[in-house]
Structures are given as C-alpha cells and as structure tokens.
Design a protein around this nucleic acid. Structure first.
Length: 625
RNA sequence: GGGGGCGUAGCUCAGUUGGUUAGAGCGCUGCCCUGUCACGGCAGAGGCCGCGGGUUCGAGUCCCGUCGCUCCCGCCA
C-alpha cells in the first residue's frame, strides 16, 4: 500500500465496494451526529464521504478533526445504505468506513472557509490565496486556464507555428507603457527593462528567417489596473508570420480563437465568421473601437433632422461644420421613467443631460385625448401623425420643439415603433463618441437587450496611422509606430509633413480582435522598410537620431534583408476570463497582485537591504509626504 | 493624479428622525444527537462601529479630515 493513498478522492465507485483502500485529503466538511460522524474528504480530484462510528478505532480521532485538516484515512469501501445515496457526487454511491486515521497536516482556525460559495473581501482572498485556490470555483478556473493554454499550443503547432523563448531582461523601450526597470550591478547607473511584449524580438525572429513564431509570452507593464487589466504582468498568445498579409494573419488566428471558444465555451454560440469593421464605422455605429456586438443597438447620424430645426440647442451646435447629432435607439424604452433614469445617469457621467423622444401609440379617433391633441397640437403639447400600422406619436420636449415631420424622419430612419425611445448626443463626434458608446451600452443593459449566451467576435480594421495632438499642435502616432501604413511606399515617402489632412487620412495595416466588448488583442502588418519607418517617425516629429537610438537594433536588422511580416497577440488572461464567465482577471490568475500592484501573499514589493542597494549603486530618495 | 461606492464580531450583513446594555447568519468553544451531505438542538466566547477631529446633554448614525478596499477616468504602442 502506498504511504498516502491507493485512490484519489474522486475515484471510488460501486466496483470498489468491499476493497480496503487508503485516501489522503482535506477535511472539507464534517457532520458530527454524535453516534455517527461524516467527513467529506477532498482532494484535487473530488470528494469522498468517510464514515466513522463508535465501533471504529478511528472514531476518537475523527471527533477531533476540523475543517481543512489534511489526513490519511484507511478503510473499507461500502455501499451507502438505501436512501442515503448522493446523486450530486460521482462517488455518491459509496462511502469509506474509517478504520484508521492519521493527521498529516492540522489546520488552525481559518481566516476564510474553503467550503461554501460566500464572497470574501479581496484583501483576505489575496493574502490567503492558497485557501481561495482550494475553493471549487477558483480551482476549476485555474484548471480551465491550463487546458485552454494546452489547446492553444496544440492548435498553433498544428498550424505550423513554432514556440520560441525570448529574453525577460531586455532594454527599455520609449514607446507605450511605463517599463518595469531592473538595475544592473555590472553597469552602475544602467537598467534592464522587463519586456512590455516581445515585440522587437519576434520581429527579429522573422528577420532571422524562422517564418512562424508563437509564444505564451509574459508581458510586463507598469500601468494602473482595471478589472480586465492586471497590474504589472499578464500573458499573451504572441505570434508573428513572415510573408504575410492581413488576410493571412486573420486566417491563421481566427480558427485558433474560434476553436478554443467552441471547445471551452460550454455550448455558447461563437461567431462563425468574424466580421471586419473599419475603425471609423465602429466609432460611428457603436461609439467605441471595442464594440459589444451582443448589444443589437446601432447608432445613426440624424444631424439633418435637427439642422435649422426648432430645437435651438442642437440647431446652434450644428452651425459648427464638424458637429453632428447622433441617435441611440432604445426599443422598448419609451417610458417617462426609463428616459428620466437615462437622463440622470447621463448627468452622473458629467453630461448636461440626455435628450430623448419617446414614441407612444396614437390616440383613438373621438377619444378625449384626441380632442386635446386637436386643441393643443399646434402649440406643441403633443405631436400626432400616421404610423405604418398604428398611429404613433413622438412625445417629450424635443419632439414638441422640432415638430412632427422631423420627428417622423428620425423615427423612420431608426425604424422605431410605439413604446420605443431614442436618445441624442450632439457636438463634435471626437468629443462625445465615448459617452455615446457608454449610453448605447447603458440602454442595452437597462433594456435587457444583451444576449449573454453568445461570444460575438469581430475584427476592427483600418486604424488611422496618425492622429492630431491638440495640446502639442503636432501629429502623433495613433497606435503603433511599427505598423505599415496602408499606402504605396513611393507615395508615402513623398508625403508633405505639413499636409495634415492627407496625413490624418492614412490608415495603418493594423487590427484588433474584439469579443463581447473586450479587446482581446491588437496586431499589425509591420513596417519593415527602414526608409518608410524613418519617414513615419519624421512625420510624428522624431528625428532619425531618436529612431536610431531607441530602435537601432531593429532598424539595422531591417537594413540587412527583412521579410514583410506581421502578427498579433491575443491576451490569454482575457480569453480565459471570458471562457470562465468571470468579470475580473484575478479570478483566472493563480497569484494575482491587488489593484495597487501588491502581492499580499509574498509581500511584494518589499524593501531591500542596504547591501543590495550598494551593490547596485542605488540610493533611495523617497518622495516627501 | 482625479471621481464614485464601501468600511459595524474571524467572515457576510442589519442597525429607524441622533437616545438605555450594538444585533442576525456563518465560523469558533463546550454539551447533546447513529444516516448526514448547507445535518439538527442547547449554551457560550467574540466589538476602539477603520482612524483622528468637530457638532451635540448624548454620535455606529450628522459634519470635516485621513487611511484602507473596490470600480471607473487619466494611463495602457
């Protein structure tokens, strides 16, 4: 017999009845009936009920056991008496009659129970992460994560990708997020940086001729946390392909992502073919470059219905040429209570309010209401007109102000019916689109329009290469300076750096994958032509000297025979989060840090000794409080 | 860096217009209980009401400050 166990706690079945066996595990739950005592013994594999009664020599010790003690139990497998079978347990047909119990690891009183589903404060959960990880939900999330990564690896290898390791100690890069720095002992005053992503390495791997790279890559960024963004470190499925177009990348990645979501998505529908949505269209329809397509609402431009109309606030805004009015439909939202709720929500978001029109069924001929409408309609108490099937009237102050013809134009354009509402945002789209997107999400949530049982994917494409930095009055890179502009090389090289309009219209061959409103990844066909790179940096106001200093290694590599290449890097943590149905990354990471980037279990970050600092030629100069 | 929410027993929470001795469930300790699987019953321990200041005859409750947790904005190629 093995020192600790002959079976795991999830193994015993009817076929084992009569056998003498040995189990080890945690005392999950103990039910002491005085004369008979039950212990649910738990390990990684499952739960087995152990029974002790006064006839057993193990009984005295069994009475002393407490939750989460680790014990070894020897005993005989027996059939549970009639009526006491537990169909919820795979081992529920049998139980182990304890003959001998050995305590392998006693436990003091627990700061949080392992048993049960009750929520606990993050601080305690993180400090006692090993206890939290014993709990069923977190334990299975972590196992899911492992299986997802296995599946991704297998799919990537089957698609002809090869896995590489890249350095963890590397050079600080000037673009993007704040770096984590590691001081060098051998080079006083100099620092390594942890990679924000293996971006330059994977491009160099392509230059080195390896053709198809992937890695489950750790990435380090010293930025503030969010629910869907771990502070400090996270993992990406990082991949890169040589001689690849955007379509090639999509065709390589989409089946991997779709396959993983179909495999682990518990039957939820997965988008069969990811639609491609241009960045500008995503902003216009959804108010964000990461739209949740489970939300069916699509915004529309209704500027013309307000231009020169009776609603003076909007009419005046529209006198500015770049101003627009966007409409957010709210099917089923045509009640005063709902529109008021949305209005106060908007005020909570720092907006002056949220204009709306409600649509109600028209009045019946001869009704008291109709006579009121007849009497007061012209002075704007109500507006009434013929709908397609029913008489539908637009209601609320806006409808009254713009009159029924304009109201009807909006209603027809958005295909709204009685009982619906529509909300409006006005101004310069670049100032209000985020709020409009938030309003679209809010309406979708409030009206229960979001189908939670789907994974809705899309590609966002055609990102602008540059954007206007109003503060510094200059052109900036919009997203990634390493993306290839979607522009003929000769024409790009000939661009006038002062031709703002042309420059801002240039797209980069860059793309995102979005699922259910979460950005899973960002990628691009890279700019592998040194002269194009120099030109792009010059447009963004960086002299060639800066480019050489910061990206000299890669620039040099591109001067010695670089293949066209591109890739993408889906976030592993976010994929697992979606598959596990969790709202927070910490639920799918083994040992996460808290929102202030502290590891409460290991006590990181921590002070170090004076000797360590001396070796590194570092003197600490704390900020004054 | 900024904003919102929260902070009462080990944990989850209740606590009335400010008013005697601050409660419940889970957990813990002891006793009882031979078929439970969220076992049940009885008894008990456990509280600087985050911290500091203020208003008041009186503060868990109202005000100011501060700290902590959390969510969001900024930030995140």
């Amino acid at each position: 017999m093995h020192r600790y166990r002959s079976h795991t706690c999830g193994a015993l079945r009817e076929g084992d009845i009569g056998d003498t066996i040995r189990l080890s595990g945690w005392c999950h739950r103990i039910r002491d009936h005085g004369g008979v005592l039950f212990i649910d013994l738990r390990d990684h594999y499952g739960l087995t009920q152990v029974v002790a009664d006064p006839d057993s020599p193990a009984f005295k010790l069994a009475e002393k056991l407490r939750a989460e003690w680790v014990v070894r139990v020897d005993g005989k497998v027996r059939r549970r008496p009639e009526g006491t079978v537990n169909p919820d347990l795979p081992t529920g047909q049998v139980e182990v009659y304890a003959a001998e119990i050995e305590v392998l690891g006693p436990a003091a009183e627990l700061p949080m129970p392992v048993f049960g589903e009750q929520d606990y404060p993050e601080e305690i959960r993180l400090k006692y992460r090993f206890l939290d990880l014993r709990r069923e939900k977190l334990h299975s999330n972590i196992m899911l994560r492992g299986r997802v990564i296995d599946s991704i690896r297998a799919r990537m290898k089957a698609a002809g990708f090869f896995e590489f390791q890249t350095p963890i100690l590397t050079a600080s890069s000037p673009e993007g997020a704040r770096d984590f720095l590691v001081p060098s002992r051998l080079h006083p005053g100099k620092f390594y940086a942890l990679p924000q992503a293996p971006q330059q390495f994977k491009q160099l791997i392509m230059v080195a001729g390896f053709d198809r790279y992937f890695q489950i890559a750790p990435c380090f960024r010293d930025e503030d946390a969010r629910a869907d963004r771990s502070p400090g470190e996270f993992y990406q499925l990082d991949l890169e392909m040589s001689f690849a177009t955007q379509d090639d990348v999509f065709n390589a990645v989409e089946p991997v992502i779709r396959g993983v979501f179909e495999e682990f998505g518990k039957g939820k529908a997965v988008t069969p073919k990811f639609p491609m949505i241009p960045y500008a269209e995503a902003i216009a329809k959804y108010g964000t470059d990461k739209p949740d397509l489970r939300n069916p609402l699509v915004m529309q431009d209704v500027s013309e219905a307000f231009r020169g109309g009776g609603f003076k606030i909007f009419a005046r805004i529209l006198e500015e040429p770049s101003a627009h009015v966007w409409a957010i439909p709210a099917p089923g939202g045509g009640s005063r209570a709902f529109c008021d709720r949305m209005n106060s929500w908007a005020q909570g978001e720092g907006q002056p309010g949220l204009g709306y029109i409600m649509f109600g069924e028209g009045t019946e001929p001869g009704s008291a209401r109709e006579s009121l409408v007849k009497a007061f309609g012209k002075v704007g108490l109500d507006v009434d007109y013929e709908g397609e099937a029913k008489r539908v009237s637009g209601r609320g102050p806006l409808a009254n102000n713009i009159g029924h013809e304009r109201t009807e134009i909006i209603r027809k354009q958005l295909n709204l019916r009685a009982g619906d509402a529509v909300f409006f945002v006005a101004g310069k789209p670049k100032d209000f689109y985020k709020f409009a997107g938030a309003a679209r999400t809010k309406v979708g949530e409030e009206l229960n329009l979001i189908d939670k049982d789907r994974f809705e994917f899309c590609w966002i494409v055609d990102f602008p290469m540059f954007e206007w930095n109003e503060e510094e009055k200059k052109i900036d890179f919009s997203h990634n300076p390493f993306s290839m502009p979607n522009y003929p090389v000769e024409d790009f090289l000939a661009l006038d750096s002062n031709d703002k309009d042309t420059l801002l219209s240039i797209m980069a061959i860059q793309y995102d994958i979005v699922c259910n409103g979460i950005e899973l990844s960002s990628g691009a066909i890279r700019n592998h032509r040194p002269e194009v790179m120099k030109k792009a940096f010059a447009i963004a106001g960086y002299p060639e000297q800066v480019l050489k200093e910061k990206f000299g290694g890669m620039l040099h590599a591109f001067e010695l025979g670089a293949p066209p290449h591109g890739g993408i890097a889906p976030g592993i943590d976010r994929i697992v989060m979606l598959l596990a149905g969790e709202e927070n990354l910490r639920e799918v990471v083994l040992f996460p840090m808290n929102q202030r980037a502290e590891d409460l279990l290991m006590g990181a970050p921590s002070e170090v000794t004076a000797k360590q600092l001396r070796e590194l030629s570092i003197r600490v100069d704390l900020p004054k409080k």
